[in-house]
Amino acid sequence: MRNLDWDGYLNARDLGGLPTSASPTGATVPGRIARGPRREFLTEQGWRDARGWGLAGVVDLRCADEVGARDGDPVVADGASEGVRIVNAPTEDQDDPEFREVCFPILDSPEYWRHNFRILPQLVLGALTAIADAPSGVLVHCSAGRDRTGMVSALLLGNAGVAPEAVAADYAESVRAMAGANSHAPTHDRQATWGQDEVDRWIAQTAPIVEDVAADVDGAFAVIGADDALRTRLRERLTAP
């Protein structure tokens, strides 16, 4: 099963198990990369569940000032994450004037992904490099595990030969999982109040955008500045035996 049952942790999925001709097994390999929301949602049992999956590293896509416990987060012992390699690799610079002007109004939509590639390619490249450098069994997360994590997951899956429709379906799962949930995002998250009707309309509206990004993953990686060696490392993480 791709859904990961880590205590306290909604919207967690393994990027393995999706059909691709790039893998000898015909599917992306499980146990290599997981996606999810902010790790502060994890209870102590959740950390144990994650370790049982094979968690060895975390790549946190949030800006530094977003990191840390918030009201309502579970209280966990200081050593809960001991031994897990945690790297902060933000995909956004929220002080960048162009990023603020262009992306802030659409941060909860895949519409902003291509703008992020163009305006801050070095940050997206840094996040991808951090994933390639991470130990196998890495969790990639942001706040909701939907938008920044969705963007990076679309690149990883598209690069691994997963069909655009399947990439869009993976994004849609995160929209469904986080609707009505408070993710403590840095900007207002209108989806935190959505019900099923809003979710269905949103998925119908945004699925073509996600599919277009996944279908043109070569173009996206070119804009970001990722070379063939990095792309191969990322692809093999999800496809090599």
Rank of each mutant, 00 (worst) to 15 (best):
R13C: 00
L125V: 01
V76F: 07
V223R: 09
E236Q: 14
V124D: 02
R176Y: 06
I33M: 10
T91P: 04
V138A: 09
N182W: 07
G126L: 11
R35Y: 05
T149I: 13
V84T: 06
G36K: 12
L42G: 12
A127V: 07
A204E: 15
Q45T: 09
V223W: 06
R235S: 05
G68D: 03
T25I: 01
E44S: 11
V223D: 05
P37R: 13
V213H: 07
D95R: 13
S21A: 15
D170I: 05
F117W: 15
F221R: 06
P121K: 14
G79M: 00
L107D: 01
G72Y: 10
E92R: 10
V175Y: 02
R148Y: 03
G57N: 01
V59I: 10
P208M: 07
Q196S: 15
P208R: 08
A56R: 15
T149M: 14
A185G: 15
V84E: 03
A169S: 12
G180A: 02
D78P: 11
R32G: 01
T28Y: 06
F117R: 02
I224L: 06
P135I: 00
E198W: 03
Y9V: 04
L10P: 00
G26R: 08
V223Q: 10
A69K: 08
E236A: 10
W6P: 13
F41P: 00
L61Q: 12
V199S: 06
E173Y: 03
F41W: 13
